[in-house]
Amino acid sequence: MPGRTVHVLLVEDNVIEHEAVRRAFTRERIGNPLAAATDGIEALALLRGTGGVEALPRPYLILLDLNMPRMNGLEFLTELRADPDLKDSIVFVLTTSRSDEDRVASYNLNVAGYIVKSDVGPGFVRLIGLLDHYWRVVEFP
């Protein structure tokens, strides 16, 4: 979809992970705008444009952590899928949890992919590169 920039929303409470994603973007020369939220509530506000912030323009892609304060990843996904305006959002879960329960629950909430970020450094950069390829070839809703 040429001419339309994909916005990336990173929902993650750890600022160092934010930094990791930002650095990987720079490394891979990914110019897409990166928005950040530290929990589900903040992310929903960003997507809906409530609380004095402007709504994140479409198309967008969400990178979601699962363990977060206030509203965790699975709660956020549940809320997202229940919202008629947001339910078609593309979400990748990006987590350190290898738990089967988390994985099954995430796919039940229609995530595009469940990625365990075990690696740091070059491995993580390659992962972000892979996501870049994804949003370049995939048609967004």
Partner: peptide, 17 residues
């Protein structure tokens, strides 16, 4: 063990940066 891994990952990230 799960929660302890997260800060360790951060430390490794920081060291690598």
């Amino acid at each position: 063990s799960h929660d302890l891994k997260s800060p360790l990952r951060d430390v490794r990230n920081l060291v690598s940066w």
